[in-house]
Design a protein around this nucleic acid. Structure first.
Lengths: 232, 232
DNA sequence: CTGAAGCATTGACATTTATCAATCGTGTCT
DNA sequence: AGACACGATTGATAAATGTCAATGCTTCAG
């Protein structure tokens, strides 16, 4: 693998504290590949052969059952995904597909596990990462169980606004059909939900969202750090 | 703390491999307490002062938002809970209450974090535990997103049956109102869902569930190891 | 420029789920 | 035994969400 990405990857929390030699070893065994959009990188149920890192582009994690499909999360650069399956040497619970042209690092799971056993700093870093993933999953479950679809959309908009710096005008970076799936509803209902937010100070035009009444929206959405703050 | 529980706790996967001295140190700083039923042990949002271990009885993890409440999981002996919050030194995302008279070990979170930094074996064991928790959370999200309430109930019954050894007659160990909350529905709908399963070979009488047609139920429930097998 | 493809939107309708109120059943206390 | 408390069930109704079909709007290839 080209050394040009080393520093980017190294700056990830999971790899930051580990031993130099171990990191080199990990990188030497890994591959970097470019994928076109809509390529299925992994399929749920398969053994976890590689730990993945998105360097550029974006990746959708989704799951299927009985002919239905749901989008579980979107991975943006630079981050790893399916770390838990790699560590436990267990089958993937989600499938992954590129949303756009993406550059992805593949690190053989065996190597990750071997170095996990050797390098205590690496092990500790993985603890931090997994705890984060777990807590994010719990938050997402709370979002789903405690809120209606309208409330989920309202809070999603507020989260995106925060990520974008707090401006009253933000842009949707995902297709609406995928956003609908992510929010646990149909595209038709997402359309209606956007209309349902007009009384609370939200207007939509294509990908542009305009928050005309921040206070009103927040009063309706009732965002909570225990659900909506993905950093803690 | 009394030494009589040491071996029980030590046999937990998280504590099994760690250094003897470190384990002793952890135990020396911890408390064992007996709680009556319906006591709120922790509240979401609070700082995570203690790692908890249920020795006997059972504990319900639940969350609230905007006046609504949902049961997230039930903890049975012997297991830890809220490990992620302890390790990250972050606020609890869920509240916990005893369901029955319960014996609980409280280990100061500071001690856990200190020993986590010192003992590499402990750190690795925590990785295993967190990966497990994460994967269980993902499975539960898939259950919720991909299945109707009737399907969730059907699969719940099959999981309980497996846990109970596979007999055609099993007993519900939880109140129906709490089961309803856990399955993401109202008690009224749980009643109707049980009736809705009669055509697929399930009859209910109080706490007793009788699976009269195993094949039919499985054909309807379509259980999947990627959702319903909590061990992998 | 034009047509085809694909997503988004809308309306009508069906299904699922929640809510409210009443009733039933069971166990407990006196 | 009788009264009470409490969860479970039932029925009627409302609200939320999904489905289907038709239409609108962009984008992009030819």
């Amino acid at each position: 693998m080209l050394e040009s990405h080393y520093s980017d990857i190294r700056s990830l929390e999971v790899f930051a504290a580990m031993d130099d030699d171990q990191f080199e070893a990990l990188m030497r065994g890994s591959y970097v590949q470019n994928f076109p959009p809509q390529i299925e990188l992994i399929s749920e149920g398969e053994p976890s052969d590689f730990l993945h890192i998105v360097l550029s582009g974006s990746v959708d994690l989704f799951s299927s059952w009985n002919g239905r499909e749901t989008s579980m999360a979107t991975i943006h650069p630079i981050s790893t995904f399916i770390l838990a399956a790699t560590i436990k040497d267990a089958p993937y619970l989600m499938s992954a597909r590129t949303l756009e042209k993406s550059r992805v690092v593949l690190i053989p799971s065996q190597d990750v596990r071997a170095i996990f056993m050797r390098d205590a700093e690496f092990a500790r870093a993985i603890v931090g990462e997994l705890a984060q993933c777990y807590r994010t999953a719990i938050k997402s479950t709370k979002d789903l169980r405690l809120r209606t679809s309208l409330e989920r959309l309202a809070n999603y908009i507020l989260r995106q606004q925060k990520r974008a710096g707090g401006s009253a005008k933000i842009e949707l970076l995902t297709e609406k059909r995928r956003l609908a799936s992510y929010l646990g509803m149909t595209p038709e209902n997402l359309s209606r939900a956007f209309k349902g937010l007009v009384p609370y100070g939200v207007t939509v035009n294509g990908n542009r969202i305009h928050i005309t009444d921040q206070e009103d929206l927040e009063r309706f959405a009732k965002p909570s750090p225990l659900i909506d703050d993905y950093r803690t």
